[in-house]
Amino acid sequence: MRKRLHPEGVVTFVVDRNINYTNVCINRCRFCAYYRGPDSPEAFVLGRDELFRKIEETLEEGGTQILLQGGLHPGLDLSFYLEMLRSIKERFDINIHGFSPPEIHYIAGRANLTVGETLQSLRDAGLDSIPGGGAEILSDRVRQVLSPRKIRSAEWLEVMEEAHRLGMRTTATMMFGSVEGPEDIVEHLDALRGLQDRTGGFTAFIPWSFQPKNTELGETVQDRPLGAGGAEYLRIVAVSRLYLDNFPNIQASWVTQGIKMAQVALRFGANDFGSTMIEENVVRAAGVSYRASRRGIVDAIRSAGFKPAQRDTHYNIIRRL
């Protein structure tokens, strides 16, 4: 099926940087090693100067997008986000891929606006597209265990549906390998496929596996100290490629699986290598640190037998390498 959709053997990647504007988060999900409470000595909100410096460096390295995400910080309101977006757009020509559905939902709630109104103002201030994070497993039974304070499946899907209606493209993720069963994964894929049939707004599906180190949940799943294995990952990639027949792209996650596994995933249905990740903090907090330079990504795609190409956020090819 990958060959049918991408017959030329091209594997794409985007040059971008993950920028986390805060690690303060009231959701405190049990699988997360990144969040801190508002009063923690390690809590931070990224200052403007540092934000701009990070964006400048991204552009210098040929980057086309920033992935701007953070925790649900109780001290920040809509005007903070609007200001942040405007200040970036005033200075830089770069795609802002930002704020996953839990963040959007939280911002809307605090501003007393609907999700649609919130998205509209964020878009007007410069938000281009929305990352698919926070989906975890779109089954409320599982969410109750993993992330009881995080938005429910229906709310996640609602944010994405509203975004698509406003013409914003988004991705969708899935975090597997914790407490879900196969039927939960099917429920997740089915919800995404249904929404995609209505809107066509998803660009890509990105499955990744729960990384157990340094997390509350990791301490309770002792029978699999390493988390989901490579065989399970490949199975998920293959099943999602087959089931999500209306998704143009499936992304391999080298950040969570390592370069070698991501290469193998290209033969199990994936056609995109994700991002060069000039900076990544959240997965690293959970004890995983696969490193790769842009050169490393290009070489990895090539040595796996595919043609590397840099793309933009919308999966348009910018440059073949």
Partner: peptide, 12 residues
């Protein structure tokens, strides 16, 4: 040398 994940796949 292979990493844990690829090692598991190697068993197949």
């Amino acid at each position: 040398m292979l990493g844990e994940k690829l090692t598991q796949v190697a068993l197949l």
